[in-house]
Nucleic acid binder design. Structure first.
Lengths: 170, 170
DNA sequence: TTTCAATAGTTGATGTGGCAACCTTCGTGT
DNA sequence: ACACGAAGGTTGCCACATCAACTATTGAAA
């Protein structure tokens, strides 16, 4: 099928895999975002921010650390935190210290309540979309494939993989 | 780790897989879009439209068929075709016939030239990001996993999987 | 001290997608 | 003939992401 003399086109197997991947890339985030938005008022990215703050000591994190945890650009994070502030789920706090001055995002009580209320349905949706339809072997395969793709697409973001986004309440 | 008595939280293995999947969902489309936008001026969705028209008889397709091929909502397609029209890569044509009246998107010569010029670098990028880092077994696993996820997230879109988006020139 | 570069963070402009409302054009029933 | 509903398609408004430009602070070089 391919024409190796002109350019390295995709084989039929690769075509199928690429088709499957692109369609997943389109539909899965949309489904996850739709459920969260509908049931809780925030999207997956905002949920990740709130969730990260829940885990943090004092429910506060520097903008920079938060951006790394959420694999986001400073700009995207800033806009998102501004949105969350409008809903009183988060506040910004400027901290001065001997070693410098920085901005922290702080989870409010309302934010903590909202994210705790949102988590169960979110996890159910993740199960419904992903883990209910995959065997344990496929889950392991997906993890490996994900790591490989990530190393190629965003090697500097491998740090994101180390901290889980959702944790059961302790 | 999980607390089976309260809610079905994710296991550690599932946490890792979910983390890998969400990060892939964020980074891979961004990388693909960035390369196409930088080198050719259109994003992946627009490339898919142009590419579908390339394969079509007379380089024309009804808006509705095109939306199905590209797994897109009518609205998204209409917006995108309007953009492509601004660049003279596509034109709209209203066709009357005994059986009805409809709108077709038609690929212009400039559009055909642009998509042909864009394809090799795009395929190289897809290889770099995906197929160069996966074994043939993993490609097969990815296909199966993708089908499973798709059946759960968008069962009505399974039709999208049947026609490849990029084909070598005949 | 002045300057220069680097880091942290914000802002505004612009591009893109989703949703709901809307307009046509059919086909069907009365 | 008329009404009505369904399908195809577009549009306007809003939500969100990106990029580049900008501010402010720190630390080092001159």
């Amino acid at each position: 099928m391919s024409d190796p003399t002109s350019a390295p086109w995709l084989s039929d197997d690769e075509q199928r895999a690429w088709m499957a991947l692109t369609t997943v890339l389109t539909t899965v985030p949309a489904a996850i975002d739709a459920q969260l938005k509908r049931d809780s008022g925030f999207n997956f990215f905002e949920f990740t921010i709130l969730s990260s703050l829940t885990q943090a000591p004092g429910r506060a994190l520097r903008m920079n650390s938060l951006a790394h945890l959420a694999c986001a650009s400073p700009s995207r994070l800033s806009h998102a935190v501004s949105r969350l502030e409008k809903h009183d789920w988060v506040t910004r706090r400027t901290t001065d210290s001997p070693v410098g001055r920085w901005v922290e995002a702080v989870l409010t009580d309302a934010g903590a309540t909202a994210v705790a209320a949102a988590a169960p349905a979110h996890v159910r949706e993740v199960r419904r979309l992903v883990f209910d339809v995959l065997t344990p072997e496929q889950v392991e395969q997906l993890t490996q494939i994900g790591y490989q793709l990530l190393r190629a697409a965003a090697p500097h973001l491998t740090a994101c993989m180390e901290v889980p986004a959702v944790r059961p309440p302790t």
